[in-house]
Design a protein around this nucleic acid. Structure first.
Length: 470
RNA sequence: GCUCCCAUCGUCUAGCGGUUAGGACGCGGCCCUCUCAAGGCUGAAACACGGGUUCGAUUCCCGUUGGGAGCGCCA
């Protein structure tokens, strides 16, 4: 990268499954770096595996990126569409004597690997066609094109996260560039695409570190500039093993359904493997300002829902009430089946939000905690609430309703009335407030009850309370 | 088997030769309190092991052990 030019980043998932949490973090790091340096963030779908790539997976990846707010620049590049360019590079390498045709059959390769395994030898292509004269080629037999890789010296990957990683060239075999059906392999395709797209920085999972050395050999053979590499350690499950569906390797869409906020996800993912001193709460603007490659940790991290929950709760609390109310309404509308809140429900939701939001870690908890606001009439009491509404409690409630009816329907007045009532009866406030809560909300847990009385209004509140006093 | 990477509280991490090893999540206690939260205070909790280098190692080097990734005509 020239000193004054802007970096070009890319996220290059293969559409063989949904966008999982590891891919999401890789995308986030690329996106942040591009934003930080005023660069470009591209998206390339690596769909050269025709067998396993699906349109559904492409859709899921695009949706996931959008939900996470990771917008990319320009058109999405589909790798398969660029096969001709990939092939041209292979042909050029062949013409220059930097690649060769290999006629080894899959069966022969299997046999070779089995023998190597049995002998405890490293498993790699033995180069049996590397130096053969083309005239020895079997007529009309299928062949692949292999890179005539450097065999001496070493290939060094200068990595921003891993440091200088050295590979002895005799450990790297002659990789396939073009398959026997003429289609390019991943190794060739990435290198050619990154070059053609002007990619200057490659931030990707550490599972590609070994590949980097091989890709470097192609880059060198072509005499192309080498991008800056940053191989990010993988994310592990809670048990330390590779992340799988068992733990956190869910589609990012699942996190949406679990009620997490995109910004909280970004914050959590960022802190998983990257740090900025003791900072934990890092809104996106700060993340863009602070993100760098130097502070990416070298060891794999485990996914922890508890911490995500906490962070999500912090974001919920920091949001303004109107936005959050819309967020909840939107979340409910996406449920199966969808639930639509009418205007009154929305107004109550917004009004109750200050009390609601500090009691929820996810949108699910938030919407459930507000359940009693959505519809009129006495809510169905849950088990604990029903148990609390004993005959004694009901008679206390009856007395309270009488006092409340005389007051102005304002939280402070209602609370004063209730306190007076409790004092007069020789009861603790809780002995009155809890039955009140149970009758009004159907729960034993709720936001401050006097505020809820005010939000529900006199008519609705009394309707709910008297349902238990007659 | 071969190559490569990693190793600080249970988890995420700060630390970049000399610190009472810091923060966050989670967990315990106290305070606040109409419930539950939130908030405040507080407690328990870590340098994997063995050799070096050094006046001095969590920090630098080597090894061991333990994790992980890769070794396809997959990406």
């Amino acid at each position: 990268m020239a000193k004054d030019s802007k970096p070009v980043l890319r996220f290059a998932p293969s559409p063989t499954g949904y966008l999982h949490i590891g891919g999401a973090r890789t995308a986030l790091f690329n996106w942040l770096y591009a934003k930080r340096h005023g660069g470009t963030f591209l998206l390339r779908i690596e769909d050269t595996d025709r067998e396993r790539s699906t349109p559904e997976a492409v859709e899921a990846i695009l949706k996931g990126m959008e939900w996470l707010g990771l917008n990319w620049d320009g058109q999405t590049v589909y790798q398969f569409a660029r096969a001709a360019q990939h092939r041209a590079v292979a042909e050029r390498l062949l013409a220059e004597g930097k690649a060769y045709r290999c006629y080894t059959t899959p069966a022969e390769l299997d046999e070779m690997r089995a023998a190597q395994r049995a002998a405890g030898k490293p498993i790699r292509y033995d180069g049996r066609w590397r130096d053969r004269d083309p005239s020895e080629a079997p007529q009309g037999a299928p062949f692949v094109i292999r890179l005539k890789a450097q065999q001496e010296g070493e290939t060094i990957v200068h990595d921003k996260v891993q440091g200088d990683v050295r590979f002895a060239n005799d450990q790297l075999d002659d990789m396939i560039l073009l398959r026997s059906d003429g289609t390019p392999t991943y190794m060739l395709a990435v290198v050619v695409d990154d070059h053609d797209m002007g990619v200057t920085h490659v931030i990707r999972g550490a599972d590609h570190l070994n590949n980097a050395a091989r890709q470097l050999q192609i880059i060198q053979a072509m005499g192309w500039p080498v991008p800056v590499y940053a191989h990010v350690p993988l994310i592990h499950g809670p048990d330390g093993a590779k992340l799988s569906k068992r733990h956190g390797a869910l589609a990012v869409d699942e996190y949406r359904k679990m009620g997490y906020l995109p910004e909280a996800m970004r914050n959590y993912l960022l802190r998983l493997g990257w740090s900025h001193g003791d900072d934990e709460f890092i809104p996106t603007a700060k993340a863009i300002e602070w993100f760098n490659l130097e502070n990416i940790g070298k060891s794999p991290a485990r996914f922890d829902f508890k911490k995500l929950d906490n962070l999500n709760g912090q974001y919920i609390r920091s949001m303004d009430d109107a936005t959050l109310a819309d967020e909840v309404a939107d979340f409910l509308a996406h449920e199966e089946p969808p639930r639509r809140l009418d205007d009154r429900a929305r107004q109550r939701l917004k009004a109750a939000m200050p009390g609601l939001k500090e009691r929820a870690k996810t949108l699910i908890e938030l919407s459930q905690g507000a359940e009693f606001l959505y519809a009129d009439g006495p809510p169905t009491a849950d088990e604990a609430a029903a148990k609390m509404l004993t005959p004694e409690a009901r008679s206390i409630l009856a007395g309270l309703v009488e006092e409340l009816s005389k007051r102005e329907w304002k939280a402070a007045d209602l609370e004063a009335a209730t306190r007076d009532f409790a004092a007069a009866k020789g009861l603790k406030l809780g002995q009155v407030a809890q039955p009140l809560r149970a009758a009004l909300t159907g729960r034993t847990v709720s936001p401050p009850i006097f505020e809820m009385l005010q939000i529900l209004g006199q008519e609705e509140s009394l309707a709910r309370l008297t349902a238990y006093t007659s």
